[in-house]
Amino acid sequence: MNLFQCILISAINCLAGSGTSPWGGVLAKYLLQRPFIGGLIIGLITGDVNKGIAVGVAMQLVYIGYMNVGGVSSIDLGTVSFACVGLAMASNLDTAEAITLSTGIATLSNSFIILCRNIIYTSAGNLMKKGCEEADEKKIWWGYEGIVILGTILERFIPCFLLIRFGPTAVDALFAALPANLINAINVVGKWLPCIGMAAMLVYLANDIWGILIFAMGYAAYGYLGLNATSIIFFAVGYAYLVYRSGNKTVLAADTVSDDEEEIM
């Protein structure tokens, strides 16, 4: 990637914070903290849209269950979307290797961001509070926007720029130096990691054993029946409609599960 492309991608990464970005709000967060959207944007910038989306989709699957609840998260998804997808596209890593590496990078970057929040943004808040008490527009702006823009450059622009500009060479050199069995191990880890995202989704969506069974039903529909992922959507819509129509929450939901399972088997 050339200098201009790196700058552009890092600038967009500034809007991909967990609601912390100086502009863009909650919609930017829900849009840009998605690796496949990051892949689309990087693809548009570098000219290889399909590769960008494919890399982004592979990354997205690992992190699909990660959400930011109450300002607490373990991984900075914006970093995955732009820095890591960009890094994966520019280096010779395969998907599984890229996933393992990204998980490490995004966890580190999250710790760095939390440090920034504690030091920089708390003092920005105190400045703004003073501004409100004095009705001083300048202090309000610096407290709410000015310092945050500078902080965002520090916490989002610079790390992302360094990673996509100089990361690929370093990463390729690193992987060339690693012994073969360790690279194989990194590959294996990358294949296991998507399970975490899926399990995290299951935690949010399934409240009881029936939820787990419905999940297994979708699993079997793909693996056992061989339906493709898109056709399963129609099947799922029909099932959701049955749930919606069922009057009694527990009893009928349970009945429909067993009916549908007979249908499958």
Binding site: K191, M198, L205, G211, G218, Y222, I232, Y241
Partner: peptide
């Protein structure tokens, strides 16, 4: 919410079967 969750569970189940490749 319940209906949407069950829709999600089926689709995510299929997706998991496609993407997770524990070796």
């Amino acid at each position: 919410t319940e209906a949407i969750s069950s829709f999600g569970l089926i689709v995510i189940g299929a997706l998991a079967a496609r993407q997770c490749g524990v070796t």
